[in-house]
């Protein structure tokens, strides 16, 4: 929604499209564009926090990331990357069409961009659903359902089971804290360290089935961290995609109405910038989350 408000000032219905407090259309366009770039800077910093969290945890616990990223499907990720890249292309083409006054081209390009956005969300839904079915969720809801052959193929009947199990598992996790601490007390002096460092909820205890997928067999501690980061980053990105789609829908409606032409195309340009940023963030997310070595 933030993006929409940034741009909406330009839609003032004065003589042509000039708001009363601007001297000229150029001044208005420049102001809008500067405002949008500043807004994009804030967006980058918003994601910056998550990228920072990612770097910290990846640097401290590389094994978690190497282990857990295998549960993400490179195919779907790559497909989504292509879809978004293509949508950026159509968006840029759309802006060009608006500048040249090609009404039909603009509408087609915007519609294609919108379509790509929905495809992206569809693929994301498939991916999330798969994670959900396997219990590969964030933080305290992480309770993987392990399969001896291939974790990507979920038996559909098992879908609801992990969902039902969540609260139970979560409380078990909470209770399991005390025994772990007690265990370490036997070892001697290290009580305090053990309380902080190795989080006692280590999924090793929960996944007694031990994932037989990997050659090394055992799962590192705190795998849930990866999925927390994964869901936060892709989730926040997804929210931005939805906002972007709303904005594109809005300019598509205006484009159909014939609002834009060589003289006035600010909203198309600004929504385009926003969409490219959303795309760009995904281009970073894809290798960081899916392609880890």
């Amino acid at each position: 929604m933030e993006a929409e408000t940034t741009q909406s000032h330009t839609s003032s219905e004065h003589n042509p499209h000039l708001a009363h407090h601007f001297g000229s259309l150029t001044q208005q366009f420049d102001s809008g564009k500067l405002g949008m770039w500043l807004f994009l800077a804030t967006e980058i910093l918003l994601f910056g926090g998550l990228f920072c969290a990612y770097s910290v945890y990846r640097a401290n616990h590389p094994e978690i990331f190497i282990y857990a990223h295998q549960y993400l499907s490179k195919f779907w990720g790559a497909l989504n990357t292509c879809v978004l890249l293509f949508s950026s292309f159509t968006m840029a083409w759309g802006v060009r069409c608006a500048q040249l006054g090609r009404q039909r081209g603009l509408v087609v390009c915007l519609a294609l961009t919108l379509l790509c956005g929905f495809v992206f969300l569809g693929v994301k839904y498939v991916e999330y659903k798969e994670k959900w079915q396997h219990g590969l969720l964030w933080g305290k809801y992480y309770s993987p359902v392990h399969h001896h052959d291939d974790s990507h193929e979920a038996a559909s009947g098992e879908g609801p089971a992990p969902q039902e199990g969540h609260p139970a598992v979560a409380s078990a996790v909470a209770q399991s804290m005390t025994p772990t601490v007690v265990l370490t007390t036997d070892a001697g002096v290290v009580v305090e360290r053990s309380k902080i460092l190795p989080a006692p909820t280590g999924p090793g205890g929960l996944a007694s089935l031990s994932a037989g997928r990997e050659s090394h067999g055992d799962e590192p501690r705190n795998v849930q961290l990866f999925f927390s980061v994964y869901f936060l980053m892709t989730g926040l990105h997804g929210v931005h995609v939805i906002v972007g789609l709303a904005c594109i829908g809005w300019i598509l409606r205006r484009a159909v109405r014939g609002d834009f032409g060589p003289g006035y195309f600010t909203p198309v340009d600004l929504v385009g910038l926003y969409w490219h940023l959303v795309d760009l963030i995904w281009i970073y997310l894809f290798p960081l989350l899916y392609l880890i070595h």
Partner: peptide
Amino acid sequence: ILATPVLGITLLLLIVERALGVGIFDPALG
């Protein structure tokens, strides 16, 4: 412009952490 978004994401993480147990800042969850 440059600092507030970081607070934004921090508070957002705090909210999801408290509501959904994401565990980014919770030592009990790593």
